[in-house]
Design a protein around this nucleic acid. Structure first.
Length: 426
RNA sequence: GUGGGUAUGGCGCAGUUGGUUAGCGCGCCAGGUUGUGGCCCUGGAGGCCGUGGGUUCGAGUCCCACUAUCCACCCCA
């Protein structure tokens, strides 16, 4: 393998031609977040390994086999963050944020790292937009958070996602449910596939969405988590549904949603796409009322979500979103001869100062080649600066979209172009 | 970690039952207009045919291994 000329497995370069799409999405996300009261928080890319072991959960796949963990030169074990929530909670505790005005709402746009086998929509370095809310225990907060997610998609012009919700209860009702489910499965163990027989003990809920038709068959009529919720959890869940109905947010209750991170309690939800491959979960989140305490804070209810930016952009492409044009130049100045070239360079500075994207040749190319280049880059206008024009203090301004040309004074060129661009916008 | 597909210039592909200098489209560069884009024409640069073995007089073409990549399981965003 060409080590020097190929990126590490599971990583991706964001080339200039598409970085604009990402920036468009990111700006839209942050802007919408502000509307909902979220401000950005930035935490380190790596944290103490223990944070994730405690926060995400020692028994999860993420912690057990997917973390980028290494010793730094001081002998500390640090880990590239595999998700965003743990670091945010840590920062909130470290700086006493939870002692301030609650609810505390913050969001983030970050790279995350998981050592997985790459696949469509799944990379080893991937990017998340996430948001967390600390303080409220009421389902009002759950509904508002989900409404926020829906607004993000709507404002990005994304269609084709469906919302699935579920409640996995609190630790107490989950324990009761697991017992009942294990008992049910034990009676049918002989009809389950090998992996499911193993899963029965460790994580019986996973058996429920085994893809094997045999297991599906054997599992029909299995107890449902929702029937085992304690009074409080059940009330919370029906409260959430009422509010979603009230807000006009469509959803389906999907008892199969089981988050693979230990910290989730009560509400869990996903926005799922059918159009971007097997890794169709664009956004996933839920409540994690026990996490703050688990990490050493005083008990604080909390909830949040994260979405995968790679998957988000895939979905935007598949739903035909209108990305803004990311053009290199508004105007390209083609200079001829020494004087013309120098004048082009000087004028570019003026134009840029006026906020006009301007460019000129620095490759000693012929006027023809300069024009070709201008056209290829998608410039709106080209101006030719030749001897005769310069003598007259003018240049030829040509539209590269229509083709019409006119003669324009060099003096005040920036204003002229600015005006043309503004007219063009409308 | 487990399966399956694929690996030929920057990108997308052809390469017939293994046989002389590996092609095509797009892109790139230059020219066709002593000073001008998009169409067209001409020319040019660019590939040890993923890597390493093997079979053979001879391999891009057959066999094996490795690596990468894609898709799926698993898991998650």
């Amino acid at each position: 393998m060409a080590v020097l000329t190929s990126a590490p497995r599971g990583t991706q370069d964001l080339l200039p031609d598409i970085s604009g799409k990402w920036r468009f999405a990111e700006e839209k996300l942050l802007e919408t977040a502000a509307l909902y009261g979220f401000r950005e928080i930035r935490t380190p890319v790596f944290e103490h390994t223990e944070l994730f072991q405690r926060g995400v959960g020692d028994t999860t796949d993420v912690v057990q086999k997917e973390m980028y963990t290494f010793q730094d030169k001081g002998g500390r074990s640090v880990t590239l963050r595999p998700e965003g929530t743990a670091g945010v909670v840590r920062a909130a505790l470290q700086h006493g944020l939870l002692g301030g005005a609650l609810p505390l709402r913050c969001c983030y746009l970050i790279p995350c790292f998981r050592y997985e086998k790459p696949q469509a929509g799944r990379l080893r370095e991937f990017h998340q937009f996430g948001a967390e809310v600390f303080g409220p225990s009421s389902p009002d907060a759950d509904a508002e958070l989900i409404a926020f997610c829906a607004a993000l998609f709507e404002r990005l012009g994304i269609t084709g996602l469906s919302l699935h919700i579920n409640s996995i209860g609190c630790p107490a009702c989950r324990r009761r449910y697991h017992e009942a489910l294990r008992a049910f499965l034990a009676e049918r163990a002989d009809r389950l596939c090998g992996t499911c027989r193993e899963r029965m003990e460790k994580n019986p809920m996973r058996v429920l969405d085994c893809k094997s038709p045999v297991c599906q068959e054997a599992v029909t009529g299995a107890p449902v988590m929702l029937d085992y919720l304690c009074e409080e959890c059940a009330g919370h869940f029906s409260g959430l549904r009422e509010r979603l109905d009230m807000l006009g947010i469509a959803y389906t209750v999907d008892p199969k949603i089981v988050r693979g991170l230990d910290y989730y309690t009560k509400t869990v939800f996903e926005f799922v796409s059918g159009a971007i491959g097997a890794q169709g979960t664009v956004l996933g989140g839920g409540r994690y009322d026990g996490l703050v305490e688990e990490l050493g804070g005083s008990p604080t209810p909390a909830l949040g979500f994260a979405m995968g930016i790679e998957r988000l952009v895939m979905q935007m492409e598949s739903s035909g979103c209108a990305f803004p044009e990311d053009r290199l130049y508004d105007i390209y100045l083609a200079g001829m001869g020494g004087a013309g070239r120098r004048e082009a360079l000087r004028l570019c500075g003026d134009l840029r100062q006026e906020g006009v994207r301007a460019g000129c040749d620095c490759m000693d190319r012929s006027v023809k080649a300069q024009m070709k280049y201008a056209d290829k880059t998608g410039a709106l206008y080209a101006a030719v600066l030749g001897e005769s024009e310069l003598e007259a203090g003018e240049c030829t301004l040509k539209s590269l979209r229509g083709g019409e040309a006119r003669t324009v004074r060099l003096e005040g060129l920036a204003d002229t172009v600015r005006t043309l661009l503004d007219e063009n916008k409308n």
